[in-house]
């Protein structure tokens, strides 16, 4: 159903660095789970519209009014790394 190479590809899309053991484990488990999903093909849904939300609601709008932001200092202080008023991240120019 899903092979190791696909697991690696999906992990990359999900920005997850998996260990070799995790790759092995997920290849087996995800195959079982995807196989379990196969039972849905028993149902003919060619004429069925998809449900995207549990309870239908029309467009929800509100007046576009300015609201005070949470305390800026507290938000910056939550960051793993900061430089003054900036969030600090590793250099990105050399990244792939």
């Amino acid at each position: 159903m899903i092979d190791r190479e696909q697991v690696q590809k999906v992990a990359h899309l999900a920005r997850l660095n998996l260990t070799s053991e995790e790759e092995t484990q997920f290849t087996g488990q995800l195959s079982d789970i995807l196989e379990y999903f196969e039972q849905l093909s028993e149902l003919d849904t060619s004429e069925v519209a998809p449900t995207t939300r549990a309870i239908d609601m029309s467009n929800v709008s509100r007046p576009d009014q300015l609201q005070p932001c949470e305390d800026r200092e507290i938000i910056l202080e939550s960051a793993p790394d900061r430089d003054g008023e900036f969030f600090k991240v590793p250099k990105i120019v050399n990244a792939e």
């Binding site: 920005r15 997850l16 660095n17 793993p80 991240v89 590793p90 990105i92 050399n94 990244a95």
Partner: peptide, 18 residues
Amino acid sequence: VKYGFRTKDPDNLLSMYT
């Protein structure tokens, strides 16, 4: 980036994420 855990001393942005 903005809150929560970050890995120690990542080499680059992508490895910081992964």
